[in-house]
Design a binder for these strands. Sequence first.
DNA 1: ATACCTTACGTGGACCGTAAGTATC
DNA 2: GATACTTACGGTCCACGTAAGGTAT
Lengths: 299, 299
Amino acid sequence: MDPHLLRTFVAVLDHRSFSGAAASLGYTQSAVSQHIAALEADLGSRLVERRPVAPTPAGARLLEHAPALLLRLDAARADIARLHQARPTHLTLAASPAALGPTVARALAELRATAHALDVEVRVLGREAVLSDVVGGRADLGFVDGAAAPSDPLPMPDLGPTTTLAAAEETLAVLFPLGHPLAGRRTVRLTDLAQAQWIDAPDTAVPLDRLRTVCRTDGFRPWIRHRGTDLHGLAALAAAGHGLAALPLPVAAALPGIAAVPVSEPRLVHRIELVHPVNPTAPARQLADLIGGRAGSRA
Amino acid sequence: MDPHLLRTFVAVLDHRSFSGAAASLGYTQSAVSQHIAALEADLGSRLVERRPVAPTPAGARLLEHAPALLLRLDAARADIARLHQARPTHLTLAASPAALGPTVARALAELRATAHALDVEVRVLGREAVLSDVVGGRADLGFVDGAAAPSDPLPMPDLGPTTTLAAAEETLAVLFPLGHPLAGRRTVRLTDLAQAQWIDAPDTAVPLDRLRTVCRTDGFRPWIRHRGTDLHGLAALAAAGHGLAALPLPVAAALPGIAAVPVSEPRLVHRIELVHPVNPTAPARQLADLIGGRAGSRA
DNA sequence: ATACCTTACGTGGACCGTAAGTATC
DNA sequence: GATACTTACGGTCCACGTAAGGTAT
């Protein structure tokens, strides 16, 4: 179970092709074939079905472990790298789009007021990409958003040694096109909207499966899919009536062409969590302290 | 970062010796030296201080990742192995000593009444060993005990894909020697005992650092150390006045030579959690269902 | 017929053991 | 000076690329 073999295993199933995986990893098809054969021999099970390429049951099990293993391997390397290349004038943030609201912006402004000559970079990414950037050392600090019951934590995948901190709780809102019958309402009940047409925008809005979980329903079925992390594109879709989406009120209220209506039932908040490694860089720690001092922390 | 290198890295720091690690792994000292050198070259940091052998700061970071990585590697292998060697008439349980109380015993008896010819093996181990046996496929089901606030989960290290279930909540008790001034009390307050002499028996009783956490104090200092998983040995130490220990009341009450006094403050329970892989064997699933049906489950 | 994966084979490098070297107690 | 880790060196095995061989669409 060499990590290289696991990496090509994951790549093969990502690309659904041996040759595609080979190209993306800089191997020949032959090498990829040999990697998969070696893994299958080692584990004593066929892992990949060929033609078409798909995981067998055993392969599916391995797929539950392999990405986490590779991520953690990167995390270990990044943790050690951070020890001798701490650049105190650089700060790289990774954030999901809806996490970049007034709370984070204000704290960042406050930090820059005290620390001049701070070189800040912000990367807007999907949720898993934010976490993998933080864990892999490509970002000093991450902000991830989601919906949850008040003061409940967001569910986080296994991250290894990191620190998580509640950064903000905001009102959750639903985006309606301006002419929509509910667009004028002061509040809406999310459960009433379970059967509506929704935009499946897992990296920008609150993911639909998350809405299903917190509302304990199997509604919120996707009507149109939105990939990427573009809030205005999402707003344009919503404005044109392609479906509904859930966002934090402070972010939603600033979007053009739509009406943002707060959610009253069930009692939910839009929550932003800050994630940083256990040995953060100096500016990352300062920003975390600024936000933590305001919002209260948890392990 | 080959897993073999990580394994010898962990072994070297466990043994605090290159030659010791070599002996335990079946390598020569030379190979171990080369492994560490390869790791250090790969990560660009000295990881191990020699003479005496100890982790450098970078090595300490790696030590936070390496055991979890190796455990998860075993878990992946075990998950796949379980797919084609499910033996429906065997059931191997792993449990920490204080988890093997009446709740588990009764459920097991109930299972054996319905499933005849079931070949049961019980392994009593320390907490981490229980988890690593379950995750590594050496046990079908694990029971881990600990102290927590009522209906709070026990803190679990990263286990990868497993299912955890609250198996029982019992009264927490403190063991006193029979002549002790507090031995006759109906209840005691744990916070009053923070400065007492305690037995440090992390694999048998509730670990002292756990008591410190739930009581939010830095008391509960170890007075004598107890290694292994022997409840009667622990009771003998307590009976002879070598220190106090915390155990679940149903278990403590059955021990000879000591007085078991329930804890009234802070509000704590002794909790037992059941851990099993996501694809359990048939008997393991039956036992988990028996216990889950009685105690209520959680993700 | 043609992608696409597998197998055969040769070379270069990685890994381990033996043995000599070096540093620390 | 003894113990314990490091370095040098050689043999073996493994992993990759090239190229030929299957196989299913």
